[in-house]
Simulated scan of single mutants.
Amino acid sequence: MPKQIIPAGSDPTAIGEVSAPPFARLPEPASLFSRRAQRWNALAAGHDLGPYLRFLAALADVQHRIQEGLAKPEMPDAAARERARSFAMPPLDRNSLALDMASQTLDRLVAAASKIEKPGAAADALDRLRQATPAKRAGMVRNVLAGAIAMEALAEHVYVAAALQVHLARLAARLDAPALVPVGEGACPACGGPPASSIIVGWQGAHGSRFCACSLCGTLWNYVRIKCTLCGSTKGIGYQEIEGGSGTVKAETCDSCGCYVKILHQHKDPGLDPIADDVATLGLDMLVRESGYRRGSFNPFLIGY
């Protein structure tokens, strides 16, 4: 597959456009998943992964619809959030996540997902998940949160991750964005999750700024450009893209840690979604792996790639 390698240490976007951005932008779950469903449907047209993208669009629509009537998720108390801030820890502690509340969301998602069109393997996985004991489901939740998913159960975990995205986005949306602080390289300041990708935004007051996008709660956090989002190195940074493409999705590679994370130029195409377009550019992943780099980001809908 042809490629273009942009010299290491350079970023083709005009740095001079960058303004003073906020550190974090919280998700808006009321519109997040419906917009993603629309994006996946748009990407599916004429795409080699069309059937899978249409399935994900239907699943994102389920994520949107199951929120109606869900009880507000239980938030950490003010003292716990302040304590987390003082120790530069995310206020949403993934280790003490209220599994009962997450389970309610998962139950709803399983029921609603049974009515959408899906590939045979996805239907079988949903049946297995429906029949799983509460203890086994709780174990799957912990697997997704830890990013440790067994190969033989990848498909079931897609549904679990989808439910967790809804639950964590609803939690993160209730945080105080100005109170969030950096908690470490490659970690979401709201929930501690890894990034799915990063985006260069075109928002008023933040045009040209780079934000990492949490793979689970959907929080965006500002991050310095031409710097590895995983290890923090500023040396040996390069960019690869598919030759002849739109130039809006590139892989930012790091020679220090040997990993890459995609960077989406949303300021050029406002329709780009950090989860959906990551999946739709799987061909770029294959290209970059041929160069010896490992995928360093996490996307629950690319588990196994």
Rank of each mutant, 00 (worst) to 15 (best):
M1C: 05
E17R: 04
A20I: 01
P21K: 09
A24H: 08
A24M: 06
L32A: 13
F33T: 02
F33S: 05
R36T: 06
A44C: 09
P51Y: 01
R54C: 12
F55P: 13
A58S: 15
L59R: 14
Q63P: 15
I66R: 00
I66D: 05
E74G: 09
D77T: 07
S86C: 04
M89D: 06
P91G: 04
D93E: 08
R94K: 14
L97A: 07
L97W: 00
A98S: 11
L106R: 07
K115V: 13
E117W: 08
A121C: 05
L126F: 14
Q131V: 09
P134C: 03
A135G: 05
R142I: 13
V144T: 07
A146S: 14
A146G: 12
I149V: 15
A155Y: 14
E156P: 14
H157P: 14
Y159R: 09
V160Q: 02
L164D: 05
A172G: 08
A173K: 06
L175N: 05
D176F: 00
D176L: 00
P182V: 04
V183W: 01
E185H: 10
E185W: 01
C188N: 07
P189E: 03
A190N: 05
G192Q: 05
G193K: 03
P194E: 11
S197I: 00
W203L: 14
W203M: 09
G218W: 06
I226L: 11
C228P: 03
T234V: 10
G236T: 00
I237Q: 15
Q240Y: 13
E241A: 11
I242M: 13
G247A: 03
T253D: 04
D269A: 15
L272W: 00
D278K: 03
V279L: 10
T281I: 07
L284E: 09
G292W: 01
R294P: 00
R294L: 10
G304Q: 08
